[in-house]
Write a protein that binds this DNA or RNA. Structure first.
Lengths: 254, 254
DNA sequence: AACGGAGGTTCCAATGAGCGGAACACTACT
DNA sequence: AGTAGTGTTCCGCTCATTGGAACCTCCGTT
């Protein structure tokens, strides 16, 4: 009897293990030692060692001079072929860059993916604050500006469905009460943009606007900044202009 | 005896097969049917079916309504964690966007990766011409502007090594004679930028400049456009300014 | 309606690739 | 020298993986 196959109930295939290993990496832990991978993936060391070695051979992992493993260029390269709102990203990028120049703060572009906000692009690293958002990363809908926007402009049914699930708390300011969140979403829809104050990360606030098509948000555009920098009226203005501009780009020749 | 393990000499592990399947996808073929994958990967249909099914379960592949398979969001998401010139890309993006606004043409940023030009960013889709370049894609060093730049500013030894290998031809204008290419590289270094005329794709030309650090090109910045649009003096000027600007960005606070 | 072909899926017996425990290295800190 | 943490190799058992074959489901054609 082989323990690993009996522990979790469902037997895990070799490929499933490889994916599990790759899944250990995330925005917080981009470099892992073998033991860390072993712990996170719940695989025995020797199995981890073998799987990891094969992934390195395939170029999906690389081992740095610090002996830690990282996601390899090959994985990035193939990943780029995924259809992740390609149109949107291409059309929006120049506008995002302009926003970044104007504000000097983190600019984020997110879409709805599997009940979370998927950040498809993010501009502005060192000049601005550190946020949880990363291109390729997922964050909850109810704690982020772009998330609240994406949720507010969904169908009522989809909103209800989201409210029915447990709402995770990430800071003391997170809105985790379904009733309060529903009210917040209504207000967001009314005023046309969303605000957060330390609901996702301490010290930060955000403003976000939807990119609308047929009454639904196909994406959300946001600015994250330190609370003390947050000039809301100005940001709302530039964001709404940018959103309009992207909407036009999307409508042109397509 | 299992044929698949004896055909190619080296036995291929389950994980290796999965990687081979994912490797079937490329810029030309972003959506594949099961049979196409089977043919390309040289795996029997039933094996392909199983491997693909597991990759779908893991979110590394998705099946569209056209029944074709595509790279999944999960793969993109994890791939984003790969350290692909992160600093460079973040710092350069606003400058790339400005270049795009100014020229309206394809702007590319590439680095050297495994003896090829790896496009780490590309701006400007529909407004401009169609090129072979794609963020995440690899192209030969000797047929592209950014490639010639990356090669020209390597060590003499690295250049000789490259010249020793067979040079692939992609258009009738490609330079595939090592002697001519060496001369071309010398000229490139002298004048400070590279030019191509239909050497990569028919009808297109390009201008490219290096982003230098310590006498070596850490990256190359290029513009690809239809030959008739190619205002070389102007492009050289804006590219060199942009290169300078990115070089400064890279030097600041790091 | 019958045919044919291509694409896709399921089945199943055989088997060897993957499995993980154990023993072994290597380093670092004490 | 001792201990703890990390990484690597070995090896016999076994079950997941394998691929041929049968089957299914759409097509367009006859």
């Amino acid at each position: 009897m082989s323990p690993a196959r009996t522990t979790a109930g469902a037997p895990i295939s070799s490929i499933g293990r490889a994916i599990a290993v790759l899944g250990c990496f995330n925005e917080r832990r981009r470099a892992l030692t073998l033991s860390e991978i072993s712990k996170k993936s719940l695989l025995p060391m020797s199995s981890t060692h073998r799987v990891v070695a094969e992934l390195v051979t395939g170029g999906f992992l690389v081992r740095g001079s610090d002996r830690k493993y990282r996601i390899g260029t090959r994985m990035w390269s193939i990943g780029q072929l995924a259809p992740v709102s390609d149109q949107l990203r291409h059309r929006a990028l120049p506008t995002l860059a302009r926003l970044y120049e104007e504000t000097g703060e983190n600019i984020t572009l997110a879409v709805l993916d599997r009940g979370q906000a998927l950040y498809v692009d993010r501009l502005g690293g060192e000049r601005s604050v550190h946020t949880g958002a990363r291109a390729g990363g997922h964050l909850p809908l109810h704690t982020t500006g772009v998330g609240k926007v994406l949720l507010a402009w969904q169908t009522p049914a989809a909103i209800e469905k989201y409210l029915g699930r447990p709402l995770e708390r990430t800071t003391p300011y997170s809105i985790v009460d379904p009733v309060k969140l529903k009210k917040e979403l209504d207000e967001t829809r009314e005023r046309g943009y969303a605000l957060t104050r330390q609901e996702s990360t301490a010290g930060n606030g955000s403003v976000a606007v939807p990119i609308l098509r047929g009454g639904r948000a196909v994406a959300a555009l946001g600015v994250v900044a330190h609370l003390t920098h947050l000039d809301i009226p100005r940001l709302v203005e530039v964001l709404q202009a940018a959103s309009e501009s992207i909407r036009h780009e999307l409508e042109n020749d397509h």
